[in-house]
């Protein structure tokens, strides 16, 4: 227990020290003051080997073994310099990230600017890694991946940039704070569209209209040549009633109001997830919709901007850091 507490305390201290030493930046060029370098696990292993070989060489009074040891040590010094040189001068710029959905791979981008031949074999990942995939690196940019199930503002934290190039003897690394943050919408939870249809006065179209679609089964229709075999009602064929095709339909509404309080069942998070689904769905169907979240009411409208406003309102519902 005490061990974990101490560890946590140490971590906290380290974080504080880091934030003082390397405050949030949008762009950074790696240099002496912001990179760490230390022998890697393998490097320390080799150092131990060197000590062992030094003992062998000394005890056998064997100059060649000593020469080998000195060469390896000297090589490690050279390696130290090359390892540092590989990352120094690497210029990274954070790219602003857009809103994303919780529970999906969250992508944050860095623009990379390095001298030719530098920044070889460099790994990028979030210090507190949340995703299985860390990053995708190409010539000029890095996509960092994170994952979160929580809606609201998400801060992936510091980015670790590290490299073992060229011989794996040294680890050069740094924890950079680009102040990455993005708003996470709840992960859409599929549900039957429930909504309050507005009274005639408030709608523009009034009532329900239906159009051929995919959502719900409506009726059977005699089969016509050219129709998809997938939609044939095979049950009826088996019953000997002849060939029919299944027809589906979906609603195109009049204006709808999505209301948190109207949703039944499930936790608040589930309800918000449902609302997210609905907002996306109505937007796709081209239905005009409004949103009622008790405290926040968004008037009926349509369009990408409207969708963003609604989703943001849902994402931030009940959170004080709005």
């Amino acid at each position: 227990m005490i061990f974990f507490k101490l560890k946590a305390l140490k971590e906290k201290h380290f974080e504080r020290w880091l934030s003082k030493r390397m405050p949030t930046v949008e762009q950074i060029t790696l240099n002496r003051s912001n990179t760490f370098i230390f022998p890697s696990r393998f490097g320390s292993m080799l150092l131990t080997t060197c000590i062992v070989m030094f003992l062998i060489g000394t005890n056998y009074q064997n100059n060649l073994i000593l020469l080998l040891v000195f060469f390896l040590l000297s090589f490690m010094v050279t390696c130290l310099l090359f390892s540092y040189q590989n990352l120094s001068g690497l210029n990274l710029t954070a790219v602003d990230s857009e809103d994303q959905f919780a529970d999906q791979a969250l992508i944050f981008r860095l623009r990379v600017n390095a001298k030719k031949g530098d920044a070889q074999q460099t790994q990028y990942f979030f210090k507190n890694s949340t995703s299985n995939i860390n990053s995708v690196v190409d010539q000029q940019s890095v996509q960092l991946f994170a994952k979160s199930t929580q809606r609201g503002w998400f801060k992936p934290g510091r980015v670790t940039v590290q490299s073992y190039y060229p011989f794996g003897l040294f680890k050069v690394w740094t924890y950079l704070d680009f102040g990455f943050s993005c708003l996470l919408y709840p992960a859409p939870l599929e549900n039957k569209l429930q909504s309050i249809t507005l009274s005639g006065k408030e709608t523009t179209l009034g009532g329900h209209q239906k159009k051929v679609g995919f959502d719900t089964f409506s009726h059977l229709k005699p089969f016509q040549q050219g129709e998809s075999l997938k939609s044939i009602a095979w049950k009826q064929v088996a019953q000997g009633k002849g060939f029919f095709t299944k027809q589906f339909e979906q609603e195109i509404g009049g204006d709808v109001y999505l209301s948190l309080s109207a949703l039944k069942g499930g936790s608040l998070e589930d309800k918000l997830a449902m609302l997210t689904y609905q907002v996306i769905n109505y937007q796709q169907q081209g239905v005009r919709y409004g949103l009622d979240l008790d405290k926040v009411v968004i008037k009926v409208d349509t369009g990408a901007r409207h969708q963003t406003i609604c989703l943001r309102a849902i994402a931030l519902y009940g959170l004080n850091n709005a």
Binding site: F70, S74, F75
Partner: peptide
Amino acid sequence: LLSVPLAVVLF
């Protein structure tokens, strides 16, 4: 090549 001089001096 860069490592040799230091190794030789150490030796």
